[in-house]
Structure formats: structure tokens, C-alpha cells
Design a protein around this nucleic acid. Structure first.
Lengths: 117, 117
DNA sequence: CGGAATCCCAATGGATACTG
DNA sequence: CAGTATCCATTGGGATTCCG
């Protein structure tokens, strides 16, 4: 689940569905990562990194690990040298696509000087 | 815009639409706030706070102020004593409703022990 | 190529108390 | 009721370096 134990420490203070959803995908780069995987279907690590201008290895890797642990993205690696690792959405992740597209479109409709992708 | 100046300090490193969207509504409580406003249409401050179990005054107020500055929520106050203040989505905020519902449904479909609202 | 290991830090979240 | 005012703590994001 990749989340703090304390979040459920009081069973009488459970979170609503939207808070739960955001606990899984609410980190700064997670939704951008998911949107790009939704858009390109499958990406190599460095491709993904290039699309997400500004993210560092540390952050991107942590982000992908958590999403993988939560079964939202799938990591595929052959053991070759040099390594080739791809990321794609799981079925669970694919269920987010409509919402991701909605967020993207909203941003796209209203941003002024951000780039298209 | 309620965001760090540094985010656009380099005009050649513009953000994609989804990153832009998240810069506006990506804070921990913003999407939960917006979803509840979408669901209930209009809420008093304390009603909203009750629905968002666990949020503190400081955080909720900061969150609402930013959303208000970004023209995503509308704050209505009569000047009465005791005060009565309501919050609702602006037209811009309402355009987020489909995406919010998508996120909510995803969380709802897959959470195990979070409460329904 | 696709990371891991460190270390660092500002920003955000949060606790508490108080108020017009 | 709807917030402010302080102050503290966390943590996630980031820079840098190194590696199989």
C-alpha cells in the first residue's frame, strides 16, 4: 500500500473514497506519470523521464516503485545489459484513464503558457 | 495563481497540461474539498470541515483561499454575526466534476476499509 | 540504460490556542 | 461560526554522485 501506518491507526476515522484515492496517487508527480503512461501506453524509464521535464531520478524512481507496489503500474525488465525497463499501466491503473484525461483536458483548456505535452 | 514564482522562472521549461492542472489542485486536501463541493453543491465552512475528517482549520482555510484565488471555488459571506460563509464551485471548478467523480469512483471501487463519504 | 545511495531542505501539513 | 495567529514536524522533492 505504500502509505504511512498511522493513516489507519484509528479505525473510527476512516477516510472517504476520494481521500483514499489521493493517498495512492496524490503525490506531486504520480498523476503526471500515470497520464503519460496512459497516453503513450508503454514507456522506457528514460522516455518517461524526458516527458516529465524537471523530475529527478530519485523522485521518479520512488514514485514508480510506489505505484508498482500499489499495482497501478507494471514494471517489465529483461535482465539484459544494458538494461531495458518499460512501464505501463495495470488494469487497475487503466481504470484511471478517464479521470486522468479529464484532468488533462481541464488543465489544457485553462492554462495559458504551459506546453501541450 | 497561488503558486511559487519559481515554477515559471524558466520560460523554456514549461509544464505540460497535467502538471499545470496539478499545480492548481494537487495539494493534499484540494481534490477532496472540490469533490465534496461537487457532491453537495454548497457547503458552510464547518459542514465542509466535518465531511473532511481530519483536516484542521489552518490547512482547510489555506486550501480554500488558494482555490478561491485561482477562481475554482466561490466564497460567499453575508456580514452577519455569527458569520455565515458558504463555499461552492465556480464554473471553472464545475468543469472538474467529471474528473472528480472518476477519481472518487476509482477509490470507491478499490478501497477496502475506508468509509463511503 | 536504469537506476541506487546519500544528504539536504524548503514547503506543506498539522497542533494548539485564541477571537470578532 | 468561521476563521487567525503561532509555531513545530514531517516528508516528499531535489541535487549530486556513483554503479552494474
Amino acid at each position: 500500500m505504500a502509505k504511512k501506518k498511522s493513516e489507519f491507526e484509528n479505525p473510527y476515522e476512516e477516510k472517504c473514497s476520494i481521500v483514499y484515492a489521493m493517498s495512492l496517487i496524490g503525490a506531486k508527480w504520480k498523476i503526471p506519470v500515470l497520464w503519460h503512461l496512459a497516453h503513450y501506453e508503454i514507456l522506457h524509464y528514460n522516455e518517461l523521464k524526458r516527458h516529465l521535464k524537471g523530475v529527478t531520478n530519485t523522485v521518479l524512481t520512488r514514485c514508480l516503485r510506489e505505484l508498482e507496489q500499489d499495482s497501478i503500474v507494471l514494471r517489465k525488465s529483461d535482465g539484459s545489459v544494458p538494461p531495458s525497463v518499460t512501464y505501463e499501466l495495470t488494469d487497475l491503473g487503466k481504470e484511471l484513464i478517464p479521470a486522468l484525461n479529464g484532468l488533462y483536458k481541464w488543465g489544457d483548456d485553462h492554462k495559458t503558457n504551459a506546453s501541450k505535452i
